[in-house]
């Protein structure tokens, strides 16, 4: 379609100028600086910098702490995406079945969306605090030695719980929308053919939800990779040991706390590559799959 337009020449430039200006100052310039910094190394006193090519990357990738942080991030992301999506799907399917109270359930279900990830983390640690957390108390009565501040896998459990809890609202809304788009006639036909409700779910509903599920998978991965920095920073600080040190937390920690600029920049660049591939993946495959069938 040929779009009707205004003939002005200068005006459109004035209109895009603010966004372009901010993009250059706060996005492109820093991104280029991160690329440049990733090929430099400073001496111990910060007096001299020297071009080292890809040495920072080699160093980062062969550093056991970095490899550990890749593993931590993978475990954290997979668990968070799985639990938040599975619970949301289960609840969305139930919400489709009920006649009364749909609006009521939805209203209560969307609360956590409005809670900052860092606060979500603090709430969960407050509830499960080893010394006075109300929900830690029954764990202790059951004879479980519960201390997420000292035990690495318990710390991971806690941050995964907080991160998944916060994301349930978002996934719930998308699954409800996805379920509503499934033609009732298909389900009725299957019911007449004698398919029970579990069978209808796995053979009709779940496959037809695939576009929504794929979309949410990408969104939840991005969420777990980047937006959960607040949870880690506020709750565990990457610890105990390095058991919850995710990639983003490590970039921050190496750059701002340990001041290893070159290696922090190299980590930034690696993260940039991850984001670019995820975004490209989303647009290439997920977008296409949305127009399923």
């Amino acid at each position: 379609m040929n779009r009707a337009t205004f003939p002005h020449r200068l005006l459109p430039w004035l209109l895009v100028a603010p966004q372009l200006a901010i993009s250059f100052v706060f996005f492109y310039w820093p991104a280029v600086q991160a690329l440049r910094q990733s090929t430099l190394r400073e001496d111990a006193f910060g007096l001299k910098t020297q071009f080292v090519g890809l040495a920072n990357f080699r160093r980062v990738l062969s550093d056991p702490a970095y490899v550990n942080s890749i593993q931590v991030t993978a475990v954290f992301s997979v668990l968070t995406a799985f639990f938040s999506m599975a619970i949301a799907l289960l609840l969305a399917v139930q919400a489709e079945k009920v006649v009364r109270g749909k609006g009521f359930y939805r209203t209560l279900m969307i609360w956590p969306y409005a809670v900052a990830p860092a606060i979500a983390g603090m709430l969960w640690l407050f509830m499960f605090n080893p010394s006075f957390g109300t929900l830690a108390w029954p764990l202790r009565q059951l004879g479980i030695t519960w201390d997420p501040l000292l035990n690495g896998s318990q710390a991971m459990t806690l941050v995964v719980a907080a991160a998944s809890w916060k994301q349930i609202s978002y996934n719930f809304l998308f699954f409800v929308a996805g379920l509503q788009a499934i033609p009732r006639s298909l389900l009725e036909a299957a019911a007449i053919d004698g398919a029970g409700s579990a069978r209808r779910f796995w053979t009709i509903v779940f496959p037809l939800l695939a576009p929504t599920t794929f979309f949410l998978l990408v969104v939840n991965t991005v969420y777990a990779l980047f937006d959960t920095f607040g949870i880690i920073h506020a709750v565990t600080g990457g610890g105990p040991g390095k058991s919850t040190e995710t990639l983003v937390y490590k970039v921050y920690n190496d750059g701002f706390v340990n001041l290893i600029l070159g290696e922090s920049a190299a980590q930034s660049v690696i993260l940039m590559v991850i984001v670019i591939s995820l975004t490209a993946f989303q647009f290439k495959y997920v977008e296409r799959r949305v127009h399923y069938g």
Binding site: L20, F27, P30
Partner: peptide
């Protein structure tokens, strides 16, 4: 609603910022 030189370049320059979340450019 306008046609101007480099219109699509502007669009792409804006679009690409999607891939540069603050977490990947913290220090600079």
């Amino acid at each position: 609603f306008f046609r101007f030189p480099l219109r699509m370049v502007c669009f792409w320059l804006i679009f690409i910022t999607l891939m540069l979340p603050v977490e990947v450019r913290i220090l600079p």
